[in-house]
Amino acid sequence: MVRLITHNLLACHVKGCTSNNFPLEFKDVQVELRDAEFNSDFLRGFIPKIEWKALVDAARQVGNTSLPLELPEMLDDDFLKSLHHVLLEIHVEEGSMTCPNCHHVYPISNGIPNMLLAEHEIG
């Protein structure tokens, strides 16, 4: 954990930070790979939610280049296997995520990101 599926769903939520606040940039990450169960229905259902470019970039930041730059129209098994691996099997255990807009740093320790805001950052 933080898996890339989660990274693809988290945006900076500091008060007033509403544009260019996604994707958060990984810094100083420690990555672990762990097997997860493959479920093609789950993947197919989730694909419409993915911000594709953000996922491809995040995968590259952690050293995985298996995804095509564009989401393919044909979702064959090989593609779903790579997608499964990228979304669910890459865990960022330590490091941080920085907002590209306001530069708030969200630290990650033992796989749990701290997304709490300081009090001047809340709405």
């Binding site: 933080v2 989660t6 939520h13 996604f22 749990i112 709490l116 805001l117």
Partner: peptide, 13 residues
């Protein structure tokens, strides 16, 4: 995943 945040100030995209 597990994340720390206040549900009234949440980061869901």
């Amino acid at each position: 995943d597990l994340c720390t945040f206040d549900i009234t100030q949440n980061p869901w995209r």
